[in-house]
Design a protein around this nucleic acid. Sequence first.
DNA 1: TCTGGCACTCGACTGTAGCGAGTGCCAGTC
DNA 2: GACTGGCACTCGCTACAGTCGAGTGCCAGA
Lengths: 340, 340
Amino acid sequence: MGLDDRKLAVLRAIVEDYVATQEPVGSKALVERHQLGVSPATVRNDMAVLEEEGYIRQPHTSAGRVPTDRGYRLFVDRLSRVKPLSPAERRAIERFLVGAVDLDDVVHRTVRLLAQLTRQVAVVQYPSLARSKVRHLELVPISTTRLMVVMIADTGRVEQRLVELPGPIPADDVTDLRRLVNEKLVGTLLADTPPLVQALVDESSPQLRPAMATLSSVLLETLVERHEERIALAGTANLTRGGLLDFQGSLRPILEALEEEVVLLKLIGEAEPSTTRVLIGDENEIDNLRAASVVSTGYGPGSTIVGGLGVLGPTRMDYPGTIATVRAVARYVGDLLAQN
Amino acid sequence: MGLDDRKLAVLRAIVEDYVATQEPVGSKALVERHQLGVSPATVRNDMAVLEEEGYIRQPHTSAGRVPTDRGYRLFVDRLSRVKPLSPAERRAIERFLVGAVDLDDVVHRTVRLLAQLTRQVAVVQYPSLARSKVRHLELVPISTTRLMVVMIADTGRVEQRLVELPGPIPADDVTDLRRLVNEKLVGTLLADTPPLVQALVDESSPQLRPAMATLSSVLLETLVERHEERIALAGTANLTRGGLLDFQGSLRPILEALEEEVVLLKLIGEAEPSTTRVLIGDENEIDNLRAASVVSTGYGPGSTIVGGLGVLGPTRMDYPGTIATVRAVARYVGDLLAQN
DNA sequence: TCTGGCACTCGACTGTAGCGAGTGCCAGTC
DNA sequence: GACTGGCACTCGCTACAGTCGAGTGCCAGA
């Protein structure tokens, strides 16, 4: 039941036209705007087949055809090639990203850049703690029974927690604690720390043990177990482009989904190495996003991946262009991180 | 040209009914639902006067009346009193805020809570650095020529910057630098630090001076001059309640405005002590928000103010309820901060 | 296998009519 | 002088009928 080349060409033409005009496309308009070399009637026959196979559909009788999610899928997989970025876009990326002063800055600039270039909603995950290595742990006494622990990761992330100690602790002990945790933990992946943290308690002197126990439980609990992920979002205003036609008239479910960090993480967090993932409409597992598509990829210094980024938009989106932009931005951000 | 008591009562009734039903309210419905003690005809006469004075208007002839921005203003200033919160709401606030582990957590919980209680868009400013005191400055060597400086403020904020030193620096010097900056700066308001930072450079030994100069310029630049404000946002999905009637059919300008930190800061950042500020429609200086109202207030431990928070919604909002909620949440957050 | 032709479908748009909520005004009453 | 009942009028909303046209499916013929 293969589709011959012409039918594929017809599908491609339909997708391209529909994405451009946002209106159902008919057989006549199609032959006028593309060099298909056949008549409208022939195209109609092809369309009938494409419809039967579920690649396109008619919003109503006597209207043109519109691609289905399945149609977009075929288009993305086999009918399109990634557009190279224009020099102007490359320049925009570079201009946008130079001069970032810290990780927050990098992430914010990136997410805005993505939203602006793709004219869609952009999502950027901060470098995941699980994939970060400990660079330094600082203990700052706030009072005799309170400690602020600040963890600095090699990815630039800095996390802090207040630790309520079981009893007062002299300054020298704090120094000892600091030395011990740093000796043991610096340089290790956060995902690998739990046994080491446990060992720290076991190995510490009786004098230090109570404080160390509290400290380690806080470390484990807040930094590893509920692995604190962070996310930045931009471009929600882009959802309103294209009138209310996209997203079947209601932004509600989309906006709701975008407020849930868990959902966002699921969308862009499961990054496989160097692949760009495209989720189209129904393929999406989140019900609220059944009317949307997501293009996402991982990023990180060199070839390692420390986090994900991507964009969300209507299924009717410029896939080749979006994919190209997402990839390019991910690569630039990776390079930027590598410089640290 | 004073309005007598009955006319004010009519205005109050119109506002209340319109907020509740979202539909223009007519004279007949008004006398039915409120005990005004007069006939519809009389109410109509009063309405004519109110309209002449600009407090209400007719969307079109033969429709009921709708309050104008000016009408809401009068209502807020003279016709309403702040509703006490229900016990359920108080409990919700407490339940929501206990168990926050750090400042980020507090702010996120607060903004979600506000959005949920008011069913509107909530905005919370992190404690302003300018109003924070330095609690500790930590210098962490990243390499021989790079230092990460971490500033911990008494409000719980933690900021970090990478400092590129002019040349390699031995570990002992880092220790000296750390001691010097902490001796000088701990306990001072960030707004007051610039002269002190300058003095640090002047007073430091020739050996330390280059490093100290770089360090101090980074401190000044990033922490004080472009005083790094942060903002959290939640509840944008609430903008879609009430169909597209609010905001004259387009969420676009609102969503755009909400993406600009500067705009948000302007909205809620200018907190005067313990007052609740209400901006109604046109009173708003930001063009994109002319169709919206903002209720905001300052918060902080005790009676000091360290930041602002508030909500944004349609001009047709439940002002008494919203004002009460915003105040209550601000007070709870203040108490929470005071505990640290 | 493709093409031109033709009948058919059905949404979009237009114009008309009736309904009803709501108004403004006026004469009458307390 | 303030309030009220009554009445004519306005005008948005809905329903309905009619027309138009884009687009289709199908079929006979090249």
